[in-house]
Design a protein around this nucleic acid. Structure first.
Length: 102
DNA sequence: GTGTTGACTATCG
DNA sequence: ACGATAGCCAACA
């Protein structure tokens, strides 16, 4: 088992199926971090650019991409999700259809 | 040990 | 529906 919180987050990310998304809060809870949703975002920001983890399937509770507008990966995240079948409407995801929960 | 930070969330006006 | 505010929690200086 993983003692490191960030390792626990990595394991949770691998469980997310393509075409679905999860919120930061859900990832935190599944990783055993309770309500440390902010920590999930901080951890993802530190991920290496060549990471194989599906970090792009993590969005905020509003169904929006949380990255700042000027962040280069923001555009890439939406593009990756769109390729997996996640539909964006006015820059927003319909969580009632695409939110994944175990 | 103390205070600040942040890819968050729930609540309020 | 939208912006501002307060609450949360681990990492960092």
């Amino acid at each position: 088992m993983s003692n490191s919180p960030q390792t626990a987050i990595y394991q949770v990310l691998r469980l997310i199926p393509a075409g679905k998304v999860v919120t930061y809060g859900e990832v935190a809870k599944l990783a055993g971090l309770g309500r440390a949703a902010r920590f999930v975002g901080t951890t993802l920001r530190k991920l290496p650019k060549d990471s194989q983890l599906p970090w792009h399937r993590v969005v905020n509770s509003q169904g929006r991409i949380s990255l700042p507008d000027h962040h280069p990966s923001r555009k890439k995240q939406q593009d990756l999700l769109a390729e997996e079948g996640v539909v964006f409407i006015n820059g927003r995801i319909d969580l009632q259809k695409f939110l994944w929960t175990p």
